[in-house]
Design a protein around this nucleic acid. Structure first.
Length: 422
DNA sequence: TCTGGGGTCCTAGGACCC
DNA sequence: TCTGGGGTCCTAGGACCC
């Protein structure tokens, strides 16, 4: 039996959500979607890239991910608004709730995309998709595209056709007419690098890729070449996965407001990142065996270095110390603009093998960190801070947020009645 | 005061083992 | 004195996604 898969994609998600919020909750009259506008990071914090743009801004060739200065050069009247990730999470959840009325099998693919397996529960897919799309607009105020096909790949390709507020089908028999004429870059998993390699082979359209000899693609792109050739032929057997697979790694990173030139400040940032990463590990009941430090220097060159632990851990201290070792072996002294800690080699057995090299009483540390986690859960993230992060009068900077990385948290007001020093 | 932050998967070379 | 052939693990780097 032919499956029926929907892919639902919010049009200019972050920007649409901002637009709706301003109209419905702030009483604004200007609809950001109707003018050249974008959601962008804070340039002063060196987060100055475009996160989402309106359709009018797109006409000026403003691109997601590009520096705000470049976008402004193309479109001087571009209206910029700062991101509000909590709003996006709420908007996303509200949409998923509506989607749940249409299907049991829902895969939340990202904050603004979802797959629905409609097989056997929908007589007229186009009509159902129209109804779903209208319901989202009526209740939530933003538009979506819905792609319909018999597998996830084709449904996703279909939702990318003409925007906004449209339903498209891309059934297998429609592939030659609707998909093959498109530039090869439009195919899922064909990025800039693959595009270049393919064009060097004389492959410019998805149709040409579909018919290219496999050995030629393998020679140029290895297994990835065979994968995208399958996609070009509309082949994808993957299921709609309702339960998200467990993380294979946990990482956090941040761009610093100013270049870091001394190891003490760098280590303060590493400690704040170790706090964030290890808190996430403990919250998920995960332990890791590999710790990696990544750096981006002021010339935008990236480096990383990793190290194995003798036993899996979820302790802030162990992750921090390992990160410091990596950092010491990696950093060449060039000023840094970005630091990250990434962990992998995840195990989810909560029992830890006692290790003869354990530098500290593991169980004692565990209990201390569990207590801190509990306090932070109950009284807020800032209820407990290490002394080195506390901004005391007369203390010299730089002041580093004690939980580093993640999507930018609202800068909280410091409430000293709740502060505790660890 | 130009370029975020969170992920996944693949490849290749070297070390090491039998 | 021509130096196999599997296998796994570790590390660095690359590519792609939202």
């Amino acid at each position: 039996m032919r499956r029926i898969i929907f892919h639902v994609d919010v049009n200019s998600a972050f920007l649409s959500w901002e637009a709706v919020y301003r109209l419905r909750h702030l009483g604004g009259t200007l609809d950001l979607r109707t003018i050249p506008s974008a959601v962008g990071g804070d340039q002063e914090k060196r987060h100055g890239i475009i996160l989402a743009k309106s359709i009018p801004a797109k006409k000026y060739k403003v691109q997601t991910g590009e520096p705000i200065v470049d976008a402004r050069a193309k479109c001087p009247q571009l209206m910029l608004v700062p991101p509000n990730y909590e709003l996006y999470q709420r908007s996303s959840k509200a949409m998923i709730r509506i989607l749940s009325e249409y299907a049991d099998q829902i895969e939340k693919y990202s904050i603004d995309e979802a797959f629905l397996d409609m097989t056997g529960i929908c007589q007229d897919p186009k009509e159902t998709a129209e109804k779903l799309k209208e319901q989202i607009f009526r209740k939530l105020g933003f538009t979506v595209n819905v792609g319909i096909s018999s597998n996830k790949l084709l449904a996703k390709m279909a939702s990318d056709f003409e925007k906004p507020d449209r339903v498209h089908t891309l059934w297998p028999e429609e592939i030659p007419k609707k998909m093959w004429p498109l530039p090869v870059r439009d195919l899922f998993l064909v990025g800039g690098r693959s595009q270049k390699k393919l064009e060097a082979l004389g492959i410019f359209t998805i149709g040409q890729l579909a018919k290219a000899p496999e050995p030629v693609l393998y020679a140029a792109l290895k297994s990835h070449g065979l994968q995208i050739r399958k996609y070009a032929n509309g082949i994808d057997e993957s299921e709609v996965v309702t339960v998200p697979p467990p993380n294979k790694g946990y990482g956090n990173s941040l761009t610093t407001p100013a270049d870091v030139t001394d190891p003490e400040t760098a280590r303060l940032y590493l400690l704040s990142l170790a706090e964030t990463v290890s808190a996430r590990l403990r919250a998920d009941g995960a332990m890791v065996r590999t710790v990696e430090v990544s750096l981006r220097d002021c010339h935008l060159k990236n480096y990383h270095h990793q190290r194995q632990l003798p036993a899996p851990t979820d302790l802030t201290g162990e992750i921090y110390r390992t990160a410091c070792q990596c950092f010491g072996e990696l950093w060449n002294g060039v000023p840094l603009r970005h630091l990250g800690i990434h962990t992998s080699g995840v195990t989810r057995t909560l029992e830890r093998q006692l290790c003869m090299f354990d530098p500290v009483d593991y169980e004692k540390c565990r209990r201390a960190e569990a207590a801190v986690d509990l306090l932070r859960k109950r009284f807020g993230q800032d209820a407990v801070k290490r002394a080195c992060f506390v901004e005391a009068p007369g203390k010299k900077g730089p002041f580093v947020d004690h939980m580093g990385g993640g999507i930018s948290r609202e800068k909280r007001r410091v409430d000293y009645t709740k502060e505790r020093i660890l």
